[in-house]
Design a protein around this nucleic acid. Structure first.
Lengths: 156, 156
DNA sequence: CTATATAGTACTAAAATAGTCCTATATAGA
DNA sequence: TCTATATAGGACTATTTTAGTACTATATAG
């Protein structure tokens, strides 16, 4: 299905909320109220994001989380990496020792190329794009050059 | 982790093997021997691929599987879709009714854009590319336009 | 008619993921 | 200095997904 985990999905929701007021502290409980995502889940996501330096944390009373950089300086690839670890579509790209049939496997190099394209696509989208209304984004995000020749089958 | 299932990985291995001799019938047992992938797994993959019309099947003695199109006319996006269903990175792009927080979710349109970029990247790679030696591919596969500005962090 | 090979489906075991809970630590303000 | 509040970190559990197996039906070459 080539999908991102739910936790990452929540991370984008949380970050989008924070990016709307990039200069304010946001406590986990506030974010829960605003987004409807369960508190323990929000909390987990926030911890992961601050560990990856996408957010900075402030403990204690009146503490909370703050964007570490400007919205346009944080991209989706970083967010996914923060939540799920290094991005690689197949397992052998992230864990080289795990594949038992290396000798008969000519695919590795090819998948690497695909990974790069996917990574670049994800890197092109920033938090600032996620905050924008949907319509305006189309121009601000780069598309693979072959794009115009194909329609999306998945859309129905 | 943004990854593709093992079954899809096997599918590319199997298809790469078949694409080397695109005009011959390949029985499941032959493919097992050549690739080292377990027979039941190969069998499962082959069935899914023929159901999706990527392969044509021939039953009975001396039967086997054959590529339905030329290697360059089958792309990776089709293979992934055959094995795992419609490609969509987040769940709400494939299952619109499942999201309970639609009202507070502004992300959907944005993820759709990302999905398109990813899909296009996958669509640009064909079986013919997978058969080529790794070096030659670089020129034959289109890359997103912003690609050159960024390096891959996942590579280490 | 028989050996061989795919078609289809149901099932089981293992792994990954989501989500919860508890304890420790830091800070603001009284 | 004490207390309320908020994050840090880690361990744990339930659920879901995925991988892999097994069995029966059907088609075809010779």
């Amino acid at each position: 299905m080539l999908r991102v985990s739910k936790l990452t999905d929540y991370a984008t929701v949380v970050l989008t909320h924070i990016a709307h007021q990039p200069n304010e502290l946001h406590a986990a409980s506030d974010i829960t109220q605003a987004t409807g995502v369960a508190l323990p889940t929000v909390s987990k996501v926030l911890k992961l994001l601050s560990k990856a330096n996408i957010l900075t944390s402030h403990r204690g009373s009146k503490g909370g989380y703050l964007l570490a950089s400007k919205p346009k300086d944080t991209n989706v690839a970083e967010v996914i990496t923060a939540i799920e670890g290094p991005i690689g579509i197949t397992e052998c790209t992230t864990d080289h020792s795990a594949c038992e049939q290396e000798s008969s496997c000519e695919i590795k190099g090819n998948w690497n190329l695909i990974n790069r394209a996917v990574y670049a696509a994800l890197e092109a989208v920033t938090l600032a794009d996620l905050v924008l209304p949907v319509v305006e984004q189309a121009v601000s995000i780069s598309m693979p050059v072959k794009m115009e020749t194909n329609d999306l089958k998945a859309e129905s």
